Computed example of a mutant assay.
Amino acid sequence: MRILIVDDERPARDRLRRLLAGQEGIGAVDEARDGVEALAKVEAFRPDALLLDIQMPGLSGLDVAASLPASPTAPAPLVVFVTAHDDYALRAFDANAIDYLLKPCDPVRLARALARLKERLAARPAGRGAAPAPAGGHADGLAPRQLLVAERGVTRIVRIADLRWLETADNYVALHDGAGVPLLRQTLAGLLETLGPAFVRCHRRAAVHLPWIDRIVANDKGDGHVVLADGGTVPLSRQYRPALLAALLAASAAPPAVG
């Protein structure tokens, strides 16, 4: 099991590393000093699980958990929160945390959390490996709730629910969320794999978020545009029109989400 320790305090990281050294089944351990570095390490180190602090400068541990990369074939790393405060417990488990440990971390409680991690990893489908997809998601391989976009030293949080449509822009994807058009360094195909079936390509350079579609307008040749609920329009090509219509039908026939 590969573990990434995420904490802005060096003594806390050192203590966790020492405690992990006495545990069986730990294959490799790496560290991150904040949320931005953690997300970069997730892609480079490809951990199976994070021991994640909550209160950190910039991105909190809850922000990191909500932005972990995942895909149907490569679920996100699992999360155990390790924090000095007990008032985040409900929000932590709402973020699908496997466990919630209070600092200073007790070796027995840590061992119990590691056992839970091993059980959850063993229950995942064979061939999952430790390799997450490159864009954003959260624990248990569910679709992500937000994306993190770095813009001139500022990290912007883009809520998936606010995304209307996606557009390729050279080596980036433009995220049209109604408040601006931040650019995420990613391919459109890779981002669509991560975001899941609610986002469907409607043009070779564009994809649309199904809940935002108001209507589809097509000409005699099958090309046209998608009209969004906010009045915006997205280009539509006849090549992608059948798949988009099929996705809309499937979404309308799906049972309502529980909870």
Results as ranks from 00 to 15, higher is better:
Gln55Arg: 15
Arg91His: 13
Pro72Ala: 10
Leu68Thr: 05
Leu51Gln: 00
Leu59Arg: 13
Glu43Ala: 15
Leu16Arg: 00
Ala92Val: 06
Leu78Phe: 06
Gly22Val: 10
Val42Gly: 03
Asp48Gly: 07
His85Ile: 05
Leu20Ile: 11
Glu31Tyr: 00
Glu43Phe: 02
Ala66Phe: 05
Ala70Val: 08
His85Met: 11
Glu31Cys: 03
Ala76Ser: 07
Leu50Ala: 11
Ser67His: 12
Asp87Trp: 14
Phe45Tyr: 05
Gly25Met: 05
Ala32Lys: 05
Arg91Leu: 08
Ala70Ile: 09
Leu16Pro: 09
Gln55Trp: 01
His85Gly: 00
Asp63Val: 08
Pro69Trp: 06
Gly27Tyr: 06
Ala89Ile: 02
Gln55Cys: 05
Arg15Val: 10
Gln55Leu: 07
Pro77Ser: 02
Arg91Asn: 11
Val64Arg: 14
Ser71Cys: 13
Ile26Asp: 07
Leu90Tyr: 10
Val29Gly: 03
Met56Gly: 01
Leu62Phe: 02
Leu68Glu: 10
Ala70Phe: 11
Asp53Asn: 05
Pro47Phe: 06
Ala44Trp: 06
Leu20Gly: 12
Val42Asp: 01
Ser67Arg: 15
Ser71Pro: 07
Leu52Ile: 02
Gly27Asn: 12
Asp63Ala: 08
Val36Tyr: 12
Arg17Gln: 15
Leu52Lys: 10
Phe45Thr: 05
Leu19Ile: 05
Arg46Asp: 01
Asp87Ile: 01
Ala21Ser: 13
Val80Cys: 02
Pro75Arg: 02
Ala32His: 10
Ala66Leu: 08
Ile26Gln: 09
His85Phe: 14
Val36Met: 07
Asp34Phe: 04
Val42Trp: 02
Gln23Trp: 08
Asp53Ile: 04
Ile26Leu: 11
Met56Asn: 00
Pro72Met: 04
Leu16Trp: 11
Ala32Ile: 09
Pro75Ser: 05
Leu51Gly: 07
Glu31Leu: 04
Leu19Pro: 06
Leu16Ser: 10
Ala65Asn: 05
Leu51Arg: 04
Glu43Ile: 10
Ser67Thr: 14
Leu78Asp: 03
Ala66Tyr: 11
Glu24Ser: 14
Leu90Gln: 09
Arg33Ile: 13
Ala38Glu: 04
Pro77Val: 01
Asp63Asn: 12
Arg33Lys: 15
Ile54Asn: 04
Asp87Thr: 05
Asp53Tyr: 09
Gln23Arg: 15
Leu59Ala: 15
Ala49Asp: 06
Ala49Trp: 04
Glu43His: 00
Ala84Pro: 00
Phe45Val: 03
Ala89Thr: 08
Gln23Gly: 07
Ala40Val: 12
Asp63His: 11
Leu62Val: 02
Arg15Ile: 08
Val29Tyr: 07
Val64Gln: 13
Ala28Arg: 14
